[in-house]
Write a protein that binds this DNA or RNA. Structure first.
Lengths: 336, 336
DNA sequence: ACGTTTTCCGCAAACGATTTAAATTTTTAT
DNA sequence: ATAAAAATTTAAATCGTTTGCGGAAAACGT
């Protein structure tokens, strides 16, 4: 900031009027004569005057900045969320300050504090896996900074939320396999203590039940990473002859099991159909391209910002917090 | 901000001292007696006083905020860059304001302006594909806001830069194939008018030359997407019997050709070895896992921020702009 | 007892803008 | 010509913080 920016005071001094006149002239206040207004505006244009957002924020008690706390940036889903947020925020005249917690509670707290120090108008938060205490966020709300949770929500705090309908996604995926003729469907699941593990398992069960297919306990395996598939390779191959479909809790697991099966002579989708969940970019490059359930990250980001801005711009509205559920959609490709 | 945050003035009023005393007490100014200092500090602690970053920035003429303009957020490489930037910035007490240009020149200009309005201390920029004019950035520099370019640099502007050594990456990749015994190496290339297309092609040629391998024109094909591989499928299969290695300009192209070859009975890496470039998450889930050249996005992000902060904190240092070249490293997996 | 240091604290200006209220000038009415 | 009304403009306070300078009170020296 060496040749520091030109200010309203500078213009006032040079033009021989008062700063208040300049301020009013620039925003077409009716008190200012046309003559003065033109003089000021022309000059401001000439010297490329731009108001100092800092001073404005301080004065207006509004920063037009949204704070985002996200577990990791390098993650297809999360970066899609950020993208959606940034796009909508930009369109509405807001900016984004972004912090990543790296799944670290302590850092999440520091980040919250820093964003609050910067007087962001609102907070968008997906809580880290290690966060068990929520005082930092409750305090923010209590002090008048609205918070919207997305994806990794927190039940302990009452506020707006946006989540994916994991149950429905899993149900649709499983149903799709059934409609393709599968009757013996293996589910590679995330741990039950994780919400996504639980919800997706329930969706799987629900689909089977409503088609009168027996739910066999041995057809649900805790296995949610590529590595785990490789570790369990033999067990999976032992089960393989008894199944005709696989619903994996995420795409990389789905792709891994496709590969294991293919390497052992199974034809996909002819003998066994496979469907994943998440639709990262992996799904399309798999061979065959993987059918999966599209988790709409971009849309979730937009929705979260929409809810937040809605609240910011209607501060007097009655506080009836909402939970927006985004239903993922089936992406049918060639693996089913 | 309803129950608006407590300020130094509030504390001063409540404690019956002046704001200046509170300010000084809080920062252990020697002019303040121990008694007063403790009084103030204890009280500030009790009411959880936090300085208003806005007011501080205005006063200090320093925001401790870095502005980032990036073409797209949803992109493995770019999101890695952001992650590296955020991590280092956080460690150095800076925050990040992030804007995506969506490869749109107009939006890039608006974003630059907005970040400048917010008085970011410096700018980190990867220019959009549609940007041909650079006045917006030159102006920023001229007005005293340092700019660091990363990845997509701009030759017209003199400033600090961080780039990937595409030539070297391609050379190493090709050399690796040669060391694995390949003698007839196909190169799937990006268009020559793109810098990466040109540099990577040159690296490929250099490696061949230094091993006295003839450079055959028909062994370099313009083909840099998965779709293009599928379109050229037949032509690629016609060439296949004559080659024993493929160096693809990016991972998705490499994976696509692996699949085409495998579907036609070629064994990888036994008959034909394949190497990619980029190392997104795709490489590891391919089958076999793809050898590739790791483009260090995270490191590039850190380096860009390091250079920027270096300049911010040594404003008097002589201006000798640097271009930091990040050498990508070979990631050997099973496809070679 | 009086001048000189020290110690400690507050005033006021500044950062860049907005806005209320007051002051000035100009216009209109009588 | 003069008061009242209308049209412009400006002064001053405010947002929350820092900081140069000055001032009062206490401690010190002689």
């Amino acid at each position: 900031m060496k040749p520091s920016h030109i200010t309203i005071k500078d213009i006032a001094r040079i033009l021989g009027v008062s700063p208040s006149t300049v301020s009013r002239a620039l925003k077409d206040h009716p008190d200012i004569s046309e003559e003065t207004r033109n003089l000021v505006k022309t000059f401001a244009e000439k010297v490329k005057y731009r108001p100092n957002a800092l001073a404005l924020s301080l004065r207006k008690q509004k920063t037009n900045t949204l704070g985002l706390i996200i577990p990791e940036i390098v993650h297809h889903f999360f970066s899609s969320v950020i993208s959606g947020m940034e796009d909508l925020a930009y369109g509405e005249g807001y900016h984004m300050m972004i912090c990543q917690s790296n799944e670290n509670y302590y850092r999440e707290v520091i980040n919250t504090q820093a964003l609050l120090d910067h007087r962001v108008d609102g907070l968008l938060v997906s809580i880290s896996k290690t966060t068990k205490e929520f005082n930092h966020l409750q305090t923010a709300i209590d002090n008048g900074t609205p918070v919207v949770f997305f994806d990794r929500i927190c039940d302990e705090i009452e506020t707006d939320r946006v989540i994916t309908d994991d149950f429905e996604g899993a149900r649709v995926a499983t149903e799709h396999l059934i409609e393709c003729g599968c009757k013996k469907i293996l589910h590679l699941a995330a741990p039950k203590h994780l919400l996504i593990g639980k919800k997706r398992y329930e969706g799987y069960c629900h689909a089977l039940k409503s088609h009168n297919i027996e739910i066999k306990e041995e057809f649900t395996l805790k296995c949610d990473t590529r590595e785990e598939v490789l570790t369990m390779r033999q067990h999976l191959l032992d089960i393989a002859p008894e199944i005709d479909g696989v619903f994996a809790v995420n795409d990389s697991t789905a792709i891994a099991i496709m590969q294991v099966l293919q390497q052992n002579g199974y034809k996909i989708p002819d003998q066994i159909k496979v469907i994943g969940f998440g639709d990262g970019p992996n799904a399309t490059i798999a061979s065959p391209p993987l059918s999966t359930v599209e988790q709409k990250g971009y849309e979730m980001g937009r929705e979260a910002v929409r809810m937040l801005i809605q609240r910011l711009e209607n501060p007097t509205a009655p506080i009836n917090y909402q939970t927006k559920i985004i239903t993922p959609t089936l992406k049918k490709r060639s693996s089913t």
